[in-house]
Write a protein that binds this DNA or RNA. Structure first.
Lengths: 229, 229
DNA sequence: CATTTTCTGCGAACGCTGATCGCAGAGGAG
DNA sequence: CTCCTCTGCGATCAGCGTTCGCAGAAAATG
């Protein structure tokens, strides 16, 4: 009831044995979100999917936000942390970012989860890995925490931009360019008109956007104090 | 009905004169969001605030998402674009980022608006300004568009991180550190434990996080092709 | 001016949501 | 063996976005 779900034991020992578990509920919810998006994850649908009434879920979770927290941490757990870190802290962080991006690509609903919340055990494990990579850096721990947050935010940023342009034939994209064209045609936006007339495509950012952008973002946060111990 | 709201005229000329306007509805909705967050902006509450029934709003807007789109573009319109651009494109972009950050700080609910959507007239004006600043750069227009998107995303990123740590005494932050401490105490996370034991505060990022981070982010996108014409 | 057409305001309603309450019953704790 | 706590869950509440249909106003049309 009080405090975060990660500090609450799943079972106190008293009373009858629960018929389900957080893990089962979380798996079902993740499957639902993978199929139909985060909005499709309603307490009722999840309950129906595990074969109980709509109210039973509240025996395992205080509210829907907690369920989402479980989901987010569960998919973060897909990240493989077995390979040991190298001696290149930046390369390790970039590799971590790639792994995180993989999670976002596999579970696009994760983009809709409000960040800042949710810091479950799997997320802490990833954080531990990031701190390990940065252990050679002689900066305050708070800065390393910020760096980790910035790394995550950057991955979200890049995944979002790559998800924003996928279907130029879609209904929304069509209305989008139509509006831009009408504004340009109305005059008063010379640079926009020129931009729309430029046929050159952007150089394919491809697979390496993380490699190109992330090091500079991290440098922006670390450069004033970067020192190798 | 079809297409984006920006391509639909507010009034066709036929029929009785509407008692309200998009601008009035938008202003009321923004005030509601400023006071109680985006979730408090329900069609019913907005309708009640302007003194009509719950269904009347649909005469002005197709659905709630369109209303949010109006809101987002309206507050972007607060950005002052009167001052002419300088001859330093990067400084101009950074100044623009500061202005955008100001909007996000004044209307924190904007963080909850799903990005990628919404590209109203005010947003196009800001985009025109960004393109004007970048007119001296000899890169494809598509790259400039991406740069503008990345600029916006970076601002969101920075505002979010600065909003994530505001109140260490809050309920959520308390449970947060409590959980981290319990994980560290359980062992197995040496770097986390060391980080929690580090008393040094982060060097105050202060007002200049945008100035420090943004130029590097933009460089990450532009450096392969950056040339001044 | 009269008619037609189109739009407005809005009460009522539908289906869905997250969440609460209370009750019957199961099963460890002492 | 008794108690006390916990479980499943039907019933229920308040709120949500959205749709429908109708009465009536006003511009366009003849």
């Amino acid at each position: 009831m009080a405090g975060s779900i990660w500090l609450r034991r799943e079972r106190t020992g008293r009373g009858p044995v629960p018929e389900h578990s957080r893990a089962e509920i979380t798996a079902v919810a993740v499957a639902l979100a993978d199929a139909d998006g985060l909005a499709a994850v309603s307490m009722r649908k999840v309950a129906a999917a595990i074969g109980t009434g709509p109210a039973s879920l509240y025996r395992y979770v205080d509210n829907r936000d907690e369920l989402v927290e479980l989901m987010a941490d569960a998919v973060i757990g897909e990240i493989d942390l077995d390979r040991p870190p190298s001696d290149d802290w930046l390369a390790d962080l970039v590799a971590l970012a790639h792994a995180i991006r993989g999670v976002y690509r596999r579970h696009r609903w994760l983009l809709d989860v409000v960040p800042g919340r949710g810091l479950g055990p799997n997320t802490v494990d990833v954080m531990e890995r990031a701190l390990a990579a940065m252990s050679v850096l002689d900066v305050p721990a708070a800065t390393k925490m910020e760096t980790f947050a910035l790394l995550n935010a950057t991955v979200v940023l890049l995944v979002r931009t790559e998800a924003a342009v996928p279907d130029p034939t879609g209904e929304y994209a069509r209305a989008h360019v139509e509006f831009l064209a009408s504004v340009a045609a109305a005059g008063g936006h010379p640079h926009l008109a020129a931009a729309l007339a430029d046929p050159r495509p952007a150089p394919d950012p491809g697979e390496d956007l993380v490699d190109r952008v992330l090091p500079r973002v991290l440098a922006g946060l670390l450069d004033t104090t970067r020192r190798t111990r």
